[in-house]
Simulated assay, not measured.
Amino acid sequence: MLKVIAACGSGMGSSQIIKMKLEKVFKKLGIEASIYHTNIGDAKSQAANYDVVVCSDSLIGTFANATAKKVIVIGLKNLLSEKEIEEKVLEKIVNAQ
């Protein structure tokens, strides 16, 4: 089971939306995942404990240390787009294996 953390600036609305969209996409693709959502500071400190971090494109740089530890970091241009989330999950998780 994948451990996924969804992060946004404040940890409230946007990360919850990302989490809900991820749950739909993972279910559609048959991927078992445990998804947690939080603010960027909390996510940065915990990222190494997860397999995947999903955040806004503008926050990707925050996770350089996690990337160095082989954590997959997915940046989104449109947090509301299930299509974009699905494309990036396929590219970075499913097809990367």
Rank of each mutant, 00 (worst) to 15 (best):
A66F: 00
L59R: 05
K77Y: 09
N49V: 12
K92S: 15
D51G: 13
E84S: 13
V54P: 01
Y50H: 02
L59K: 04
S81H: 08
V25H: 02
I85E: 05
N78E: 11
V25D: 04
I31K: 13
K44H: 04
V73N: 00
F26S: 07
A96S: 09
E32P: 02
K24I: 12
D51E: 08
K24N: 09
T67G: 03
L90Q: 14
V71N: 13
V89Y: 12
G75K: 04
K24S: 15
K21I: 01
E23D: 14
K24T: 15
S15I: 06
E87C: 10
A33G: 10
A33K: 06
S45R: 14
N95T: 14
I35T: 08
E91C: 08
G11E: 09
V52A: 00
C55D: 06
H37M: 07
L22P: 06
D42E: 15
E23K: 04
A48E: 06
A64L: 11
D51R: 08
V53E: 02
E82R: 10
A64P: 00
L22N: 02
K69M: 11
A47F: 00
I85L: 06
I31R: 07
C55L: 05
G41P: 10
V89M: 12
V53T: 07
I40H: 01
S34H: 10
I35M: 12
L80E: 01
V25A: 05
V89A: 14
F26D: 01
N78V: 00
N39Y: 05
V52W: 05
V71Y: 02
A96Q: 15
S56H: 08
